[in-house]
Each structure stands twice: as structure tokens, then as C-alpha cells.
Design a protein around this nucleic acid. Structure first.
Length: 270
DNA sequence: CGCACCCCCTGCCGGC
DNA sequence: TGCCGGCAGGGGGTGC
């Protein structure tokens, strides 16, 4: 599901409504996520106040008082909604948190690939091994040149490797490479400096525009209850195999690589 | 060490 | 119409 633009959109929606709120009533309905939700979650979070909401890559960091951090990853199908307590939760409710401002923060996750951890900030960062955020850190040309020295794998798998650069998944890797005119199967090692510079600009351009359109709703992702993102209407290549390239009308091609689909224009991307 | 492969889980879609 | 296989924005573990 959610890559950087979707998680950032969720952060911006939640932020004004949860800042300063205190978590009061915690109910866990399903503890089987990627790793089990700790049984003491209610006692860990009760009466903790949200002092900040940050994002790194695809992770949300709910910064709580007394050096607690609630780390949340949404996996493929995770959704976080703020609702009035009387609103009927949709299917696959994992947990809900009643806040002292009268709202209820609910996490839904059909496939249960999401992940939650409560720990100190130091402990959280030690456990994650994330590369720089692909938007906030705005990695420069020297970053890419340095990466190029160490990695021969395809440019697309580098973009999707969260330990190298965080936030880009399959949709945006495809879109960024289409924007930059780079073939997804090209090895990073053989990409010249002008292409690297286009890549760097494309990362920013695509991610910022996707955030402006509140992310991509392909199937499960919603901005808030019932409200979809709109960036999927502007895809250059993702899931457009057989359709004409928006630049040259050549048919978009799909190839499977490491179990994930790559989409590209064989004429514009070399 | 890097990388290919397989797994986790549910829902949806197309083909038969 | 119904069942079945394949596929989906995720990441982690294993074994070569």
C-alpha cells in the first residue's frame, strides 16, 4: 500500500488533530501483525501525550512524552483513521485508541503486514536501519555517486531498498524512472552523471506531485475515511502496460523482476 | 557480503 | 454461477 506520498498525506491529515492529545482508552482487537502487538500495549500508551508526528520513509513516528515513541508501519493494507467514537469501524480493525479530545484513532489492516513498536527514540532508530529519507534528506549527486561505487544491482532495486534510501516502493520507483527516462533494469553502476542528476530531480518532482494529489489510491489506500488520493490518474507507467506512453505513444511494457512488476516505455527509457 | 527466493495474509479479478 | 490460481503500494528470513 502506502509509500512515502501516502504516508506523508496521512501524517498531514492526522497531525493537526492529534497534536497535544493524550491517549486514554486502548483496545486491541487483533494482535497478529507482522510481529505480535505486545500484550502490555494499553499500559505502555495510556495517558501518553502526542508531542510530534514525524515520518521517515514509510514509517510514522508518533513522538510521545517521556521519551516514548510509537512507531507505525502500514504494510500493504494498513489504514489509520481518526473518527468519532460512535462511528462504525470498518472491517479488519486491529486496534483503536480513544483520545482525550473526543476522537478515536483506529488502525485497520486486512493483510496484517503492518508493524508497531513502542520504545525509546534511540531504541527505535537502532532497530530500523533506514537510509536517508528520499524527500526530507534530498540526497545530492555525491550520495548517488557514492552508492554507485558500492552497488551493481538494478537502479530500480536500489530505489526500493529502504536501507539505502527510504520511502520509495514499487509504484514510485516505476514513476520516478519513467520521469527520468531511465530503464528500470539498468545497473546503477553504468548510469552516467547526467542521468543521475535527472534521477535526483525526478525523485523530488514525482514525490512532491504525488503528495500534492494526496497519494495514489490503487486499491486499499484512503486519505481518510472514504476519501481517495488522485495521483493514480496521473501515472506515466504504473499498471499501464499496453497503454500508450504519454510522450511518444509507444505501448508501455511490463516485465517481472524479483517478483515485482516493472512498467516502462521501451522508447523513452534507456 | 549481495542477491534470488520464499514466506507472511486477505481480497479481488480473470479464466475456465 | 462458482471455484481456483495469480496477483497486489510491504518487509524479513534463509541459503547460496
Amino acid at each position: 500500500m502506502p509509500e512515502l506520498p501516502e504516508v506523508e498525506t496521512i501524517r498531514r491529515v492526522l497531525y493537526p488533530q492529534i497534536l497535544g492529545a493524550s491517549i486514554e482508552k486502548i483496545e486491541v482487537l487483533e494482535s497478529r501483525l507482522r510481529s505480535p502487538i505486545p500484550a502490555n500495549l494499553p499500559s505502555l500508551l495510556r495517558h501518553r501525550r502526542v508531542v510530534e508526528l514525524q515520518r521517515h520513509g514509510k514509517y510514522l513516528f508518533f513522538i510521545l512524552d517521556q521519551d516514548w515513541v510509537w512507531l507505525q508501519h502500514l504494510g500493504m493494507t494498513g489504514k489509520i483513521f481518526l473518527q468519532a467514537p460512535e462511528d462504525k469501524p470498518e472491517q479488519h480493525l486491529i486496534f483503536s485508541m480513544g483520545l482525550d479530545n473526543g476522537l478515536s484513532l483506529r488502525y485497520h489492516d486486512a493483510r496484517r503486514f503492518g508493524y508497531l513498536k513502542i520504545a525509546s527514540e534511540k531504541e527505535i532508530h537502532a532497530a530500523l536501519h533506514l537510509g536517508p529519507d528520499s524527500l526530507l534528506a534530498n540526497p545530492d549527486l555525491s550520495f548517488w555517486k557514492e552508492l554507485k561505487q558500492r552497488h551493481v544491482k538494478s537502479i530500480k532495486s536500489v530505489l526500493m531498498d529502504q536501507s539505502l534510501i527510504a520511502g520509495i516502493g514499487n509504484i514510485y520507483a516505476n514513476e520516478i524512472l519513467a520521469c527520468a527516462g531511465i530503464h528500470p533494469q539498468r545497473s546503477l553502476a553504468e548510469i552516467d552523471e547526467s542521468s543521475l542528476s535527472r534521477l535526483k530531480r525526478s525523485i523530488r518532482k514525482v514525490l512532491l506531485e504525488a503528495i500534492r494529489f494526496q497519494g495514489s489510491s490503487v486499491s486499499d489506500y484512503y486519505v481518510s475515511a472514504g476519501k481517495k488520493g488522485r495521483f493514480q490518474e496521473r501515472f506515466l507507467v504504473y499498471s499501464r502496460d499496453g497503454a500508450p506512453c504519454r510522450t511518444c505513444a509507444t505501448k508501455i511494457v511490463a516485465v517481472k523482476e524479483h517478483g515485482r512488476n516493472s512498467f516502462f516505455c521501451p522508447r523513452c527509457q534507456r
